[in-house]
Design a protein around this nucleic acid. Structure first.
Lengths: 147, 147
DNA sequence: CTTGATTGGTGCGATATCGAACTATATGGG
DNA sequence: CCCATATAGTTCGATATCGCACCAATCAAG
């Protein structure tokens, strides 16, 4: 990979896949029954970016097919964690709003995971971890632009 | 995260999840019908690490449940890409061997993806990419040890 | 040797994921 | 205005993933 060798990317993606597995498992251990990582990711997104966005925009943000987002939102609605309302600006579209229960759940999970992640961070070189995120973001953007 | 703040880890895992999505999609675009990323990952693993290993060891390596590995291997066997034989050292276990067709397919996919990834690498800071893999590996190991 | 606990693998049921086809609405060109 | 095309969301069917329960083989303690 020093003179660009694609094999390095394989190994990188492999490592990323495993970390993804472990992160999911860790997350789901803290979530109430019937909720999985995508549910939490959506709640978190609604808080970080703000709610009132559309399903399609969220599907793009997470790079999943819109059918998957439909399914995830259905689960969240069933648990009263989000509300879905018509989109006043576009009759085809909808808007997604987090409920008070959703806000609460998200905060509880963050708190529970905070302790969990804190332990991880004690074993890690935090400085280096800080450095890799922008590199990953760059990688994500390049991958997204060239497909 | 400078003074360890768990929120940084959320964002990191989020970015990792998206890259994982994109990498999967890119990979599967190059795979023959009916085969998906886990199939290729197994073939690649058998070549890199050597075949004759057991399903359970591979499940551990990829951090997936053994039932998932059973399923993936079933697909590979159906396509004649691997052979499964008894394990002479342990009657409960089996051994997994890549076939000539499997070797061939793996090489073809690598070649096709090589060009694809090459384009990506042209748009990336390769030096920084090289630096992040050991950090990810460290993260993976710590996550694995503390669960 | 016997027996209880452990381990590797599979079958099954529940749920997740995703592509294809469909509906309804929106948009742009005549 | 009308129509062709594009877009947001859903439905549906196929397959993937995973936890649970099970079987068979191994191991460990006595």
């Amino acid at each position: 990979m020093a003179q660009p060798n694609p094999t390095g990317l394989f190994e990188l993606f492999n490592e990323i896949g495993i970390i993804n597995q472990l992160a999911r498992a860790r997350m789901e251990a803290r979530l109430p029954d019937g909720l999985i990582t995508p549910h939490f990711s959506v709640l978190n997104h609604l808080i970080r970016v703000g709610d009132g966005t559309t399903p399609q925009r969220m599907a793009s943000a997470f790079q999943v097919p819109k059918t998957s987002m439909t399914h995830t939102l259905k689960g969240l609605v069933a648990h009263n964690l989000v509300d879905i309302r018509p989109n006043p600006e576009d009759g085809r579209s909808k808007t997604v709003w987090i409920t008070e229960a959703g806000r609460q759940l998200r905060n509880d999970v963050i708190a529970a995971l905070g302790a969990d992640f804190g332990i991880l961070l004690q074993h890690l070189n935090v400085e280096k971890l800080l450095e890799i995120k922008p590199v990953l973001t760059e990688l994500r953007i390049v991958m997204d632009e060239n497909r």
